[in-house]
Structure formats: C-alpha cells, structure tokens
C-alpha cells in the first residue's frame, strides 16, 4: 500500500510572528520556516507503517514556493521515499490545495492519505475534509491512533470533545493527524545523507489543470490585544466578590 503525505512549509512554531505595518498579513521576511508540526506527525506515522511492512512506499507532496523543497527534504530525511513539489508563489487556499491533492491522488493512487489536521499558520483545519469530499472517500479527522486492518480498512481513534471515538474506515481514506498520534523522530545523519539522493519531482498547478486563483480576500490582519496584568486579591472573600462583581462569572 502506498501512503501519501501532504506537507506544508509554515513559520516555525518557535517564532513570534509579527504583523506587517500595513496589516496585509504576517511578515515573512527572514523568518525561520519549518514543516507544519502536524504534518511532521503525519509523516512519522506513514514512515512507521512502512517500517512495520504495512506500507510499501511513502510519497510526500507539498504545494508552495521553491524553498518548500527543503520541507520535502526534511520528510525524506525522516524516511519518506520520494517527493513532489507543486511549485507556486501564489497564496493557495484550502479548496485549491484540496483540488490539487485530488489530482495527485488520482495520479498516485495511494491506499491512504495521512495529513496534519491543520496548518499552524492559518489554522483553517479544512483541507483534509475538503479532499475527502472531493474524492468521495471516507475521512477520520483528529486521529490519535491508527490501526490498519490489512490494506482494506483502518480503525482510527479520534480525539473529540467528549473523549475518544473509534471509527472504522474503509480504505482508501483520508486521516488527519492530531498532536498525540506519535512523537516524530529526529532525522539522523545517515538519513539526512540518504535524503539528498531521493527524488523530488517539481510540477506546477497548471500541470494538474487546477485553477488556484484565490476566492477569499484578506481585509485586515491585527495582532491580538495585549494581555492585561492580573491582580492579587487579599482574601477568599475578596476573590468571590471580584468574581461576582467585576468578572461577572458567579
């Protein structure tokens, strides 16, 4: 079974983001970029499937500018087999990403797509669901555990508001990875060296006949309001009074 893992190049999770002065977006100049952490978890899961013999090949796809090759290379260093970059400098919205991924899925015919539940830059949490809808495949989102039943079905444990829910999905399916699915490995030096020799195919959105023209317009980006400092209360009675009168929560 082939596993497809879409990965996105995003601002590193350690970086404190700054809004551009004209409020048109976030300042990306000279900012460290990394693989979306949820995509790292998805890659790890796919690589583990391959190591257990459940998957035969792990293919990584990214959509974005030329440096997204580095993100693909990171996944290859973790153990994925080959990469595909759909190169564009344009903003690609979730629906366009899903359409491109659909085209890739039709070409690659994977038995399973594992992807991050959302990207930490725009936090849309939409692409996995849209891709499942476009393909008319089963979907299991927010996975914290994936158990394959051969190549025909999978039991996926999902983290939902009330607790854990386990779904059985027929394969091929879309699974989106949540934080607790696994702990991604560090790339070892021999694997970084091997990754250099693994192939990365470069295509353009046009090659897949997908129109990626944005449909949404960003009107304004603002920083969250600065948090006010807390106050120390003198006594429990004071606390209760303030919760009642000032915070209005009692």
């Amino acid at each position: 079974m082939k596993v497809l893992v879409p990965v996105k190049r995003v601002i590193d999770y350690n970086v404190k983001v700054r809004v551009k002065p004209d409020q048109s977006g976030v300042d990306l100049a000279n900012v460290k970029m990394s693989m979306n952490p949820f995509d790292e978890i998805a890659t790890e899961e796919a690589v583990r499937m391959k190591e257990k013999g459940a998957a035969t090949e792990v293919v990584v796809v990214s959509i974005g500018p030329q440096p997204a090759q580095e993100t693909i290379r990171t996944a290859l260093a973790m153990g994925a087999d080959r990469g595909l970059l759909i190169q564009t400098d344009q903003t690609v919205e979730p629906l366009a990403v899903a359409k491109l991924l659909k085209a890739v899925v039709e070409q690659e015919q994977p038995g399973l797509v594992i992807m991050g539940k959302q990207a930490i830059d725009d936090d849309n949490n939409a692409t996995g669901q849209m891709l499942a809808a476009l393909l008319d495949w089963p979907q299991a989102t927010f996975a914290s555990k994936i158990e394959l039943n051969g190549a025909s079905a999978a039991n996926v444990t999902r983290e939902v508001d009330g607790g854990l829910q386990t779904l059985e999905v027929q394969l091929p399916a879309i699974v989106t990875a949540d934080l607790r699915l696994n702990e991604p490995r560090y790339a070892s030096l021999p694997n970084i060296m091997k990754a250099k020799k693994k192939p990365i195919d470069v295509k353009s959105p046009g090659d897949f006949g997908v129109d990626i023209t944005p449909r949404l317009k960003v009107s304004k980006v603002t920083e969250p309001p600065k948090r006010q400092g807390g106050v120390k209360v003198e006594s429990v009675a004071d606390l209760v009074m303030r919760l009642k009168n000032e915070a209005g929560v009692l």
Binding site: Q69, A77, Y186, L189, I192
Partner: peptide
C-alpha cells in the same frame, strides 16, 4: 547550505 542547515537542526534536536 540546505544540507548544513539540516545537520544543524538535527543536532539541535538531540541537544
């Protein structure tokens, strides 16, 4: 280079 950056990051992760 991209590869040297990957090396730095790999070691950093261990550290």
């Amino acid at each position: 280079t991209e590869e040297q950056e990957a090396i730095r990051e790999g070691v950093q992760r261990v550290c």
